[in-house]
Amino acid sequence: MTLTEPVTEVVPPPAPSLPDWPADPPAVDPSATSYVVVAVGADAGTREVAGAWVADAEGRAPTTLVVLDAVADPRDRAELTEALERARTGVRVMAVGGQHDVLAVLTAARDAGAIDAELAAYCTHTDDLPMYCAHCRATHRVEARPGEEVTCPGCARVLEIHAHFTRALGSFLASDAHAAGLPGPTGARP
């Protein structure tokens, strides 16, 4: 008996530095055996998308709806964590809300063991984002977009938000915008 090398697909994956949000809410993945739909915030757009997902998902497999006011709230956070702990492999987690909140939900799901193929998301807006300050090394919610300058809520430096995003932390890199009259560093290898 001998072994052969497994067949590996050599499809170059894209190299995103920014989250790649769909223009429309993604469809419910019919191959799942259960669903967790997470809606953050009370605005009509969020409720509408979550409602449509739940209506479709419930007809296919057991579905849990988790409605949160804010991901940072400890009680809301505990509810999300519990839903993810109950989930079995075969689940699909679908998140809807503003960009900052959706990224927080996706990060929590990844920390709970989920991988990209098990996650779907829709942002009702991209007016805010989680920003990692390279100088005070903390993550803050700011209302700004990559390329813009903001004052760091942690260390009061004026920062430039870079088009450099990490799914692991669910945040964008920001660094001192005025240390020199040059574009800030991009945070990658030279």
């Binding site: 001998t2 052969t4 191959s31 492999t89 075969g90 193929a117």
Partner: peptide, 19 residues
């Protein structure tokens, strides 16, 4: 797969003829 497992969770080693 029928139970919703994504491909990247699946790992196999097949027997064949020559490595």
């Amino acid at each position: 797969r029928g139970l919703g497992w994504p491909e990247s969770r699946l790992h196999c080693e097949r027997f064949g003829l020559d490595a």
